[in-house]
């Protein structure tokens, strides 16, 4: 809530900041006053960056990752294995998998996971587009890399069921223990799955 008597532009900025995820009214106020005190150039750069992200970033029409041009660099590259498609929930997940440097295939970003209770159904995700890519040929294996959450798993099973008649191989990431986790506090589900995915020492 903007404080009473704050000039309208400040109140408006506070209100806009408080719409951001993880920003409460207090933080929104702090950010707004920070912008007010900051050099004019910094404030303009922020405004420009905000505008650019909406004006210059588009979705790749093939993998639906965020990109400056469509198709994106990954989809256009000659150095990627076009028979492998890694399916993720969010554009950020592409960065995470890319950072491992261990994957040479292409991606498909669903833009979410099925959440039946909150009303997020298959038609809100880029599932049909994935089917289209597989139907078009080329793809030999689809790797489901959705989160190991209830929603992620439901999404993975649902997509797997849709892909099955197309005869493509569908795999999913092995689920182990998060590094740094304490065995004592591990839940049964994670632990039993990690046991199944155990490897020879």
């Amino acid at each position: 809530m903007p404080e009473a008597g704050a000039p309208e532009p400040i109140a408006r900025l506070v209100q806009e900041f408080s719409k951001l995820p993880g920003i409460g009214p207090k933080s929104a106020q702090r950010l707004a006053y920070h912008v007010l005190r900051a050099p004019e150039d910094d404030a303009r750069a922020l405004a420009r960056a905000l505008a650019d992200v909406k004006e210059r970033i588009v979705f790749c029409g093939t993998c639906f990752n965020i990109t400056e041009r469509d198709p994106c660099g990954l989809c256009e590259s000659d150095n990627r294995d076009r028979t492998l498609v890694c399916v993720v929930e969010q554009p950020l997940d592409v960065l995470v998998v890319e950072r491992t440097g261990g994957f040479r295939g292409l991606y498909h970003v669903l833009h979410g996971a099925l959440n039946p209770i909150d009303g997020v159904g298959p038609e809100q995700l880029r599932i049909q587009e994935l089917l289209g890519r597989v139907e078009a040929g080329d793809v030999a294996e689809v790797i489901m890399a959705t989160n190991p959450s209830l929603e992620g798993e439901a999404t993975s099973m649902y997509v797997q069921r849709l892909l099955q008649p197309l005869g493509v191989r569908v795999t999913r990431l092995a689920r182990g223990l998060p590094s740094g986790a304490d065995l004592e506090y591990m839940d049964d589900l994670t632990l039993s799955r990690a046991l199944e995915g155990r490897q020879e020492l």
Partner: peptide, 27 residues
């Protein structure tokens, strides 16, 4: 602390859909 993780339920698409529906009704 987990009492039951319903693993086999989660790994069955039809059963998890039914379960989610029941959870929503309770909510």
């Amino acid at each position: 602390e987990t009492v039951e993780s319903y693993r086999r339920l989660r790994e069955d698409l039809e059963a998890s859909a039914e379960a989610l529906y029941c959870l929503e009704l309770v909510d």
